[in-house]
Structure formats: C-alpha cells, structure tokens
Design a protein around this nucleic acid. Sequence first.
DNA 1: TGGGCATGTAACAGTTTTGTGACATTTTTC
DNA 2: GAAAAATGTCACAAAACTGTTACATGCCCA
Lengths: 227, 227
Amino acid sequence: MSQPVVLLVEDEPAQRSVLSYNLKAEGFQVVEADNGEDVLLLTRENLPDLIVLDWMIPQVSGIEVCRRLKVSNDTKSIPIIMLSARSEELDRVRGLETGADDYVVKPYSVIELIARVKAQLRRLRAAAIGEKLSYDDIRLDGETYKVYRSDTELKLGPTEFRLLSTFMEKPGRVWTREQLLDRVWGRDIYVDTRTVDVHIGRLRKALCQFGGKDPLRTVRGAGYALG
Amino acid sequence: MSQPVVLLVEDEPAQRSVLSYNLKAEGFQVVEADNGEDVLLLTRENLPDLIVLDWMIPQVSGIEVCRRLKVSNDTKSIPIIMLSARSEELDRVRGLETGADDYVVKPYSVIELIARVKAQLRRLRAAAIGEKLSYDDIRLDGETYKVYRSDTELKLGPTEFRLLSTFMEKPGRVWTREQLLDRVWGRDIYVDTRTVDVHIGRLRKALCQFGGKDPLRTVRGAGYALG
DNA sequence: TGGGCATGTAACAGTTTTGTGACATTTTTC
DNA sequence: GAAAAATGTCACAAAACTGTTACATGCCCA
C-alpha cells in the first residue's frame, strides 16, 4: 500500500475538488464519484483502501451505499468515513448502524479529515496484520502476534512488534524515522524521532536474543531497513 | 533540495513582487522573469525545481514556453504551474495539452498557490526517491538505498549516494560544481566548490572498490558527468 | 619545454549521526 | 493496589561522515 487509493464520493464539485486536491497532495491516489450508483461500480473496479462518502448524494444515498458495501465480502473491510451536513444528521446516520467507521460533520477542516483518513489507514494496517509474514529465518504471525526466528519464539513488546511488522511488509525498504513514527506510533502524538532509535535498539536485541546476526540495517542520513 | 528554487514568470510587476515575497517567506529561492525569452535561458542556467508560469507573457507565450520546456530532456521533468487569467482561458489552456502539471486561475489566493507549489515539490521529491535507476552495470535503488555494480553491492556514504543518484538521473549530462552543490548539498550552506572534487574522488573510489573502470568523466573547465 | 591552471587525493580536525544504558513515568497485569 | 512491563527521554560514547588544506599530478597552450 505504498500509495493508498481513496475513493471520494461527493456530489458538490467545488468541495470534491478541494478534497481531491488535498488528498493528492498528501500522497493518496484519488478516485472520484458524484453519485451512489458509481460508487458501487468504482469500488469493485478500484478496490480502494478507503472510502470518503458524503451522506447526501444522488441516486443511491450514502447510507444505502454504505450498507451495501458492508454486506459484500469483497468490500466490507474497506473503511468508510461518512460526511454529513449537520450534527443532527450525524446522530441519525450513526443511529442507523450503517457500519461506517468514522464520521465527520460539515463544515469540517480539511486537515482534520485528512488526519482521520490517515488514522483509518493506520488501523487498517494493524488489522491487515492478520497475515503471516516472513523474511529470511524470521516469521511473524499477525494472528497470534508471535514472532519466530528459526522456530524459536521471540519475545517482543508491542512497539517492537509493530516496528518489525512494518519492516517485514517490505523487506529492504528504507523507512525514515518520520515514516516509522507515522506508521508505528501515529502522527497525532508528538514523540521525539530519537525514540525510534531506542526502539530499534530494543528490537535488535529482541531479534538476536537467541543468537543470529542483526537483520536490521542502519542507513545513515536516511533511516532503517530490514535486510 | 533543502531550499528549492522556484522560477517565477509573470510580467505584471506588482503581482510578481507579491508572489516573490511570499515564496521567499516560505523559504524558497526565487528567480524572476517577465518574458518568455528569459524563461528558457534562466531555466537552463538555474535548473529550478519548479516553474510558476503566467499564460500571458511577452515575446514567447506561456504555452509555447511550456511546450518547449517539456520537450527538452534536461527540463521536461521540472513541474510547471500555469497561471491563467480567467477560467475560460483555463479550459483552453488545459485543452492545449501543454504538459503543465497544475493550473491556477486568477484571481488566486497566494496561500493556495503556495500550497500547490509545495504539493508539486512533495510529489517531485517522493518521485525522486524510491526510484530505481541504472546505467551500464550500475544499479541504484532509491527505495532500499542500495547500489550495485554487476550484482555486487557497493558501500557508499550519504553524499556519495546523492551524488550518484543525481548523475544517474541524467547519464551523460555534465553538471557544474555549482549545480551539484545545489542539488546534492543544498543552497543555504556555504561549501567550497573544491569539496565537490573531493567527493567525486570518494565516489570514484566507491564505484571501483571491487574493480571495473571509472564511469565518471571529468569535463575540464566545466564539471563532471556520468558516462 | 615550461608556466599556469585545473583537477586528484591523502590526511586531519571537526561535526553530525547513531547506539545504548539509565531513569522517571505511564500502562498493564494479576 | 502492588508488581511487572513498556515507554519516552536524556546523556554520553562510539562511529561514520565531512570540509578543508596542502601538495601532487596532469593538461593545455605559447
């Protein structure tokens, strides 16, 4: 998910273009729709990582779209952020149990919406960890949250685990400290970038607690990578 | 690219000075031009990271300038943001397939324009890094920060890496010491141009540490090139 | 052929970046 | 509610990288 795809559903062209622009600027790939009919099609076609969905859209209402997406097995795990015009609506929408994952009331600040989009994607990533990853003699099981090195179970703390799973998603890729803070810690919270170094150190120790060589690579002036 | 260079092309002095002032306040280095003729010269001379280009300028029109810049290999990767006076024009300009990367309609808010400038530069930077480049038997992977020569991994320091990736972006192109200082070191810091020579030497050694012939070429009185 | 430049490079003295133990706090566990 | 685990930050040490200088070497042209 190096450039996440966001499906943006909003019928008001001006708002759509502002949002689209900002999402793109943040590095997302944006697919746009202005009515409920298209959403269902575009979702199947593009399999976006996340959907930003206005409640009031032509043809099929946002609520209905949301319901349908949450029913189908292919699409129900895609997070949906619902936009609604007023807070009374929000209560109603929420009460309807549509299955949306987050709600934003207009007028929203674009910054806030983006923050929520990122937050959802972070969650998604953590959840995506249901899968098993492996690199060299290291195996990581996202379901049981266990890590093995040559069949010996390693003991690592939560942060070390998230750090490792980030690395294992793309072995070899160099992550800057900022990127790691973003993915492993969450951008909202202020943490010193040096903290990353310390946790890298702890992860290293954990990975080598029963021997083996350090699989983490320090890239001076850039960040860290696995392998 | 620690202090990006923006080439600002606008013939109306008042507007130009407002924009220039604000861009500088945002930490950009600004080169100004008020006619199409100069743009082509200044672009080659300064190799700006981005061009803000008014559609209506004397001598050579913005559209023509844009086209020419997008044809030349040296300049076609420089993002261009086009300014046009009215939205009808915008449609026309856009229709002309000039290759501009973004469009802003007058009257624009300065804040918005700056936001777009930043967005373009973010994209550029994101693209520049993470790229896989290759030349002859040398491969450079911007994602893993690894460099290979005939499948053997080379060890280079940060500056050597940036230097090499600059060369590999345009094999054969001759870079002056000043241009290299700009791109590899960043403009804000004062460094002697002889420093470039030293690092070129180090890069040469790094590239040949396991044999092979020196792929860097010294161009007497000008600078250096790859191949 | 020799003088004047431009470039190559070893050496060294910083400077910056990274590694890590220690410690105070917070959070979790039982 | 106490003990244990995990976390974030700091301070200092170690390592890697840099810029400059000084001198060597090579190139060009009269």
